[in-house]
């Protein structure tokens, strides 16, 4: 039954050894290990929080970017639309202007043509009249060679005019 009979010497040695080791380990091992673990855990916790914050900031930034991009796109679309409108209106205006100009030109041309035509007609009329007068003169000269005939004709003319 020596199994359950503790040796007194062993108990003393064990107490001394365990006491010393407990003291040494507590001071030189457990204390630095525990403080290092705590420190690391704190730093990990901090890093995680920082990462979370960074992710949130990134999210915000992304949202901002998206918003900005959307705004830019909208603006671009508006600009393009406006430009298109302006282009169309310019073309329209130009067309209108061209039309009026053309019709003006045509009108003035027509007027001028009319004018020219009238002038030409007048000239032709004058020419014809002059020719007719010349022919008539010649004819009259031919016919009124002798005095008598002249006098007869003048009298006749006078008669005609006086009647008027």
């Amino acid at each position: 039954m020596s199994l359950i009979n503790p040796g007194f010497g062993l108990v003393i040695w064990m107490t001394i050894a365990f006491g010393i080791v407990l003291f040494v380990l507590a001071k030189y091992a457990w204390k630095p290990i525990m403080s290092a673990l705590k420190e690391r855990e704190a730093s990990i916790e901090e890093s995680l929080q920082a990462a979370e914050k960074a992710r949130e900031a990134m999210q915000d930034l992304k949202l901002d970017n998206e918003k900005l991009l959307r705004e830019a796109k909208d603006e671009r679309d508006a600009l393009l639309k406006e430009a298109r409108n302006i282009k169309e209106s310019i073309i329209e205006e130009a067309k209108e202007k061209a039309n009026t100009e053309a019709s003006n030109i045509i009108d003035s041309a027509k007027e001028r043509i009319e004018h020219e035509k009238n002038a030409a007609v007048v000239e032709i009329k004058n020419l014809i009249a002059q020719n007719a007068i010349a022919i008539a003169e010649k004819v009259l000269r031919d016919e009124l060679k002798d005095k008598k005939d002249q006098m007869d004709y003048i009298n006749k003319l006078l008669k005609e005019t006086s009647l008027n």
Binding site: V21, L25, Y28, A29, P32, A36, E39, S43
Partner: peptide, 18 residues
Amino acid sequence: ILVLVFVSVANTYKKRKG
């Protein structure tokens, strides 16, 4: 063994901080 192992581990903790 306990003292050697754990004091050396403690030193590693000090050396490799963070």
